[in-house]
Design a protein around this nucleic acid. Structure first.
Lengths: 102, 102
DNA sequence: ACGCTTGATAAGTCATTACTAATATAAGTA
DNA sequence: TACTTATATTAGTAATGACTTATCAAGCGT
């Protein structure tokens, strides 16, 4: 059920760009705001959504706060998509023996 | 860039339930509406969104229309999530040799 | 302590969207 | 041809959400 929040989080283009920028190395909030061309509050709000979806974590470092990807949410998302994929493949294989009923 | 639409499509819980129900076997629109407890137009609209995201396809069969999962969109989503995952792992491994700058 | 910097939160606004009811189209049936 | 069934489309509405400005809290340097 946790992947639901992940989909909602990554549905927004700005939030997805944020996430993609974090995937390589940790970033501070202001740094992200400068690069994405949105205000600092907007970035903070987006990061809060990503955090609730377990897609990012953060640690305070001095007066800044470093955000980095959270493997937990990404793994959950990956597991979900993988299961969908294999289910679809299974259904496709089964469609040769079993005709769609109703 | 096509995964963007996939995320947006699956961000809605109703739409995700629709998609999950299709993953096993093809379904007609009315059948889906009955099971999900939403009106038929709502289902048609959701299916249109899923179709634009390349997550489902449909074929007319008599006066009904059968919807089934589209491997194209699912594969794109899977590729994206997999790349995120490996990038995060790479960054984690690199973090031992390279300290996060700025 | 004071000021500066960094980030989070609050309140308000505008745009998007998920839904319903009503209507249109099209395929099958008598 | 008329009638029914199945789905799509349109129009309107209520809720959600992404953004802004303003403000608050906290850490660091002088």
């Amino acid at each position: 059920m946790t992947y639901q929040a992940s989909f909602a989080a990554l549905a927004d283009p700005t939030r997805r760009r944020l996430f993609e920028r974090l995937r390589r190395r940790p970033h501070a909030v202001g740094e992200l705001a400068r690069h994405l061309g949105v205000s600092q509050p907007a970035v903070s709000q987006h990061l809060a959504v990503l955090r609730r979806a377990r897609l990012v974590t953060s640690v305070p470092v001095g007066r800044r706060r470093l955000y980095r990807p959270d493997p937990a949410g990404i793994a959950a998302l990956r597991a979900y998509v993988d299961r969908m994929w294999s289910d679809v493949l299974d259904a496709y294989a089964a469609s040769f023996t079993q005709r769609p009923t109703e």
